[in-house]
Nucleic acid binder design. Structure first.
Lengths: 232, 232
DNA sequence: ACCTGAACACCGTTCAAGT
DNA sequence: ACCTGAACACCGTTCAAGT
């Protein structure tokens, strides 16, 4: 089921003479390519959400026929996978070379992870059901290495990584969904105050109103890291 | 946008005489109702996954016309919300009355939460983008009460709850997605061993092969609870 | 109060074909 | 090697109507 996806397009640039703009939409758009498709898919997802990505709409934006996409891409699922991974590239920690501060490094990595996903809210709800692309694996690898160097026992390593992963995924996915629907949130809150006799505790603590998401993320992460930290 | 959804169907039982089975499909199915629709939607989701739920298919299984559903239900999103919440009922802890063991209670609640969602894997990927129904709020309320009684400071309470929520959501969503696609998993693993020079650490620790999910969930939860536990 | 079919404006993808 | 339109088998939902 792979077969195509070779890459290495034919060079299509035989002198940018004023040829009669072939089939390519008026402005002389660059030819189709995996990268252009993915980039445009991300744009579309950013502006219209998960349900807004349509093969037809995508082709439209690219100035091509729908079926042309299928030369470069297996199917719609493939587009999702590629868009997702493309959004999760990690540029590495700031220029503090080999800091001794493993905890700071981990916090930075995970905050960046969260931030990257929140910049593209659709990614949060997509990630859990898609395959792990190279950028995701890269992040896991780096996290793994950092924890290992910090002294987390080999026997605890996988649990530690999954715990952090779970925490980040849960936090991001939740945050992204609340973000999408201020309406829902208001509705939930209203339902809640209205039913405050059924949910007195979370009503009193204003659980659903608390909107310092970043602060809560950071503080919860500290709790988790407290638990994970190698006992000396 | 509410308007209908009243409930209180007309009594339709005027003596189960052998009337000529009206339009209702041959076997004399019970009339449509919110509950029947939701129950059937859950069945459908269980057997065919998120993409398998279709208003037409749903109506088919219920032996009714598609548009009849719209009397009882706002739209497809509504069906998702209802199905999701219906699957998350909490029956409460086992019959240990008012145990002093808050930690045990919390672990039980969260393991049950995870188990409920894994019994219906679609729920995991759905929950983050849907509204919070009464059963979800109920679980949050109970969790909140337990932590509060255990001595978690008010100022830490919301962070504690969200941390646990995040952890459970992340773990469940991840587990469910791996479950869905053994293929993907095998593929990922193969890609990984093949690229072991790029991801040496996670390759060595066999991060993606570790399949004691329940154990990892429990141990990671312990880490988090260690961090959360009120310091005495 | 409850149910219906026809119709509309969409989908993703197969296929056979063009250059 | 790359792109295409027509066609197929679907979708969710509006509407005007039936009982």
């Amino acid at each position: 089921m792979a077969a195509k996806r070779s890459g290495a397009r034919s060079k299509r640039s035989q002198g940018m003479s004023v040829r009669l703009q072939s089939v390519q939409e008026s402005r002389g758009e660059p030819p189709l390519s995996r990268e252009r498709i993915v980039a445009t898919a991300v744009e579309l997802l950013d502006t219209r959400g998960v349900d807004g990505l349509t093969m037809r709409r995508l082709a439209d934006r690219l100035g091509s026929g729908v079926m042309s996409l299928y030369w470069h891409v297996d199917n719609k699922e493939d587009v999702f996978d590629l868009a997702l991974d493309s959004v999760l590239e990690y540029r590495g920690p700031p220029q503090t070379v080999e800091s001794q501060d493993w905890r700071g490094e981990v916090v930075h990595m995970l905050e960046d992870w969260r931030a990257s996903m929140l910049r593209h809210p659709w990614s949060a709800s997509l990630l859990p059901r898609r395959a792990l692309g190279p950028n995701i694996l890269g992040r896991l690898e780096l996290l793994s290495k950092t924890l290992s160097k910090a002294g987390v026992a080999d026997a605890d390593l996988n649990v530690a990584i999954w715990s952090l992963w779970n925490y980040v995924m849960g936090a991001t996915v939740t945050r992204a969904s609340f973000d999408l629907s201020d309406d829902d949130r208001a509705a939930a809150q209203q339902r809640l105050t209205h039913l405050s006799e059924r949910y007195p505790t979370i009503e009193r603590s204003r659980l659903l109103l608390d909107d310092d998401w970043s602060g809560a993320f950071r503080r919860g992460l500290d709790f988790l890291l407290d638990g994970l930290a190698p006992k000396q």
